[in-house]
């Protein structure tokens, strides 16, 4: 109940903000009858109405995970974002091994297996991508290979 109400309210707020920013869209001199503003405003309006409906008529509450699981999901997100930033400067193999190992540990908390999965996936995928599919990937950081 509460989740749907909150979600509905958030959708409505975002939709209103979206409409507000749509009204700020610059129009050019070659305007057509509809212009660049109308369609985004319609979308925003429909979303806002649906958001209000959700707030008024919520479904049953979903089962949210306990705090500990939420924590591990948060860690996963942080690790994935870090991976996104690390992929270019640090090359493929190192960040992939670390990220894959952490994700693997989160799914099945056994450190030895997780580490093996990380290293195995990292090297295995690198070989497939680089040599079988011919993608241009850098395996190691540039300052190592020179």
């Amino acid at each position: 109940m509460a989740s749907d109400r909150i979600f509905g309210a958030v959708v409505t707020l975002i939709a209103l903000a979206y409409i507000a920013s749509a009204t700020q869209i610059q129009t050019s001199f070659m305007a057509d009858p509809v212009g660049p503003k109308t369609f985004p405003i319609i979308i925003g309006a429909v979303a806002a109405i649906c958001g209000i409906i959700m707030t008024l008529k919520p479904d049953e509450e979903p089962e949210w995970p306990e705090l500990k699981t939420m924590g591990s999901l948060l860690i996963a997100v942080v690790v994935l974002v870090g991976y996104a930033y690390a992929l270019k400067p640090l090359g493929f193999i190192l960040p992939t091994a670390v990220t894959a190992a952490i994700l693997s540990y989160q799914i099945n908390p056994q450190p030895a297996k997780a580490a093996a999965a990380g290293v195995g996936l990292s090297i295995g995928l690198f070989v497939i991508f680089k040599f079988a599919l011919g993608l241009s990937l850098f395996g190691l950081p540039k300052f190592v290979t020179g």
Binding site: Y83, A84, G118, L125
Partner: peptide, 26 residues
């Protein structure tokens, strides 16, 4: 615990190979 990290890595490399930008990955 092997499959899902693998899927993630394939997704990252796929998207990365399209644009080469960290922004798309985030």
């Amino acid at each position: 615990w092997i499959l899902l990290p693998g899927v993630t890595m394939v997704s990252f490399v796929g998207i990365y190979s399209l644009s080469g930008s960290y922004f798309d990955l985030v």
